[in-house]
Design a protein around this nucleic acid. Structure first.
Length: 446
RNA sequence: GGUCCGGUGGCAGAGUGGUGAUGCAGCGGACUGCAAAUCCGCGAAUGUGGGUUCGAUUCCCGCCCGGACCUCCA
């Protein structure tokens, strides 16, 4: 059995992954809040955890992957108020857009995609348990989690409650007993989404949703909880406080996996800096696989600098891989050990790519097994999913290109190289690169 | 201010207590009418000052630099 190592945020070290039940691995990842198109930064966790789940499926007989959708949130409400579009329309459309965008990036759907609004009953149940056990209290239509009731609060994210207070940036609401207490339930006026509850009509706070949805679909204890590193505090700290307080004796998530942030051209995504791109924006400019590979080019726990140059480099790598597979027809092969080992070493995708380059070298030299191994590795990573023919020459009608190649061939036979080169230059200006080989001239999209 | 993470060749980016992957770029060569692709070869890096050690890029401490987080941003 291949051993999988994962860096666990809980212990801040690399650990051997041992599932609670080796016959059934359970994973929860925080999904999007659906109020606007997903940006390229949102794509990183989607792709990273897609690779992790693909790997887990390779290693274990059964994996349940839950990735939620947050469809009740003040940002959604604000968007509706600003645009006049009904909330239900915003969330439905944005969720559909999200699905389309990440599917284009080769991200497979999760097994369960729970929505917060469909788990109000579970949310209320957990809140009631927290109140009954003294971990939460109702005040002025709100229900708040009592941070002092959970002594380990702050341990996960490495903060003490005192420093959290010192760093608090918002005014403390008068109904809070302790400045650090956070909201589990808040009252909703008639014009906002709300559900009847023991505390009046209201809506859930953000953190409680994930505690409720993971509980419903994976149980009190499960294996892996993932998300972006920016969620460590407060979101995941709060989830842990809620779930462990509501279910004493449970473990909640045993391994916490966090992807680092993504910068664009060296800076954090920001609309004012002009480096804020949606997934849709970048898909319009480059092949989806090149974008996916660019997102896996750095280790998931390192800051990734996304740029056109990174996408171009990824595309060049993919060209090389596809060329190798095209040159030497692959035979059915297992995932090469070097690639599997790299991925099992805390998802070391850069090392996996290095191993794939070695396979490509061998495939270029005629090794059909290496070619098959390269393809198998690509499949595990969600890459090399096209036929080389489609990758290099897919798309529009190529008749005019073939005609130009024929004309250039005639010119070459007549040793009219000026004419031949002019034709080649013309094709190049139209994004078509020619390659003369022993078997004739081939072309590809540059 | 607090907490955390990181600083590896021109660029991207792994790894390691004992000759520092991989890719791109560069240089030389083969092939080609010339290119492209492919192949062969070459040069090129561990922020800084200490400590531990036979030996440190790796472990520890200081400094400098960069980044993230600090109550609802993946």
């Amino acid at each position: 059995m291949t051993v999988l190592f994962l860096h666990n945020t809980l212990t801040r070290r690399r650990e051997v992954f041992v599932p609670l039940d080796p016959r059934h691995v359970r994973v929860y990842v925080c999904g999007p809040t659906v109020y606007d198109l997903a940006h390229i930064g949102n794509a990183r966790p989607a792709v990273v955890f897609d690779v992790l789940v693909r790997l887990l499926r390779r290693l274990y007989p059964r994996v349940t992957y839950v990735r939620n959708i947050t469809d009740v949130d003040d940002k959604i409400n604000a968007r509706a108020a600003a645009t006049g579009e009904p909330i239900a329309a915003i969330t439905a459309r944005t969720a559909a857009d999200y699905h389309a965008d990440i599917a284009a990036l080769g991200v497979l759907p999760p097994d369960v995609e729970p929505r917060a609004t469909q788990h109000i009953a579970e949310i209320i149940t957990i809140i009631e348990r927290l109140i009954a056990s003294g971990h939460a209290y109702a005040a002025q239509g709100h229900v708040l989690f009592s941070v002092p009731s959970y002594p380990a609060y702050g341990q996960f994210s490495g903060r003490s409650p005192d420093e959290l207070l010192a760093g608090a940036r918002v005014d403390v609401a008068p109904y809070k007993r302790d400045a650090g207490d956070f909201v589990l339930w808040k009252p909703s006026p008639p014009d906002l989404p709300g559900w009847d509850s023991p505390w009046g009509r209201g809506r859930p706070g953000w953190h409680i949703e994930c505690s409720a949805m993971s509980w419903k679909h994976l149980g009190e204890s499960f294996d892996i909880h993932g998300g972006g590193a920016d969620l460590i505090f407060p979101h995941h700290e709060n989830e842990i406080a809620q779930s462990l307080s509501a279910f004493p004796g449970s473990r909640f998530a045993r391994y916490w996996v966090h992807n680092e942030m993504l910068n664009v051209d060296g800076a954090k995504l920001s609309k004012s800096l002009g480096n804020f791109f949606t997934i849709r924006d970048v898909l319009a400019k480059a092949p989806a696989e090149a974008i996916r590979m660019a997102l896996l080019r750095a280790h998931y726990r390192s800051v990734l600098d996304y740029s056109d140059a990174a996408v171009a480099a990824s595309r060049a790598d993919l060209d090389r891989f596809y060329r190798a597979v095209e040159r030497t027809s692959p035979v059915e092969a297992e995932i090469p050990a070097a690639v599997l080992d790299a991925l099992c070493d805390d998802l070391n995708t850069p090392a996996a790519f290095a191993a794939m380059h070695t396979l490509a070298d061998r495939a270029m030299a005629g090794d059909a097994g290496a070619s098959g191994g390269l393809l198998a590795a690509g499949k595990l990573l969600g890459l090399l999913g096209s036929a080389p023919e489609a990758w290099f020459r897919g798309g529009e009608d190529a008749g005019w290109i073939e005609a130009a190649i024929a004309e250039r061939l005639a010119a070459r036979k007549a040793r009219d190289f000026a004419r031949a080169d002019a034709i080649r230059a013309d094709l190049a200006s139209k994004g078509v690169a020619l390659e003369d080989g022993p078997a004739g001239t081939t072309w590809r999209r540059a």
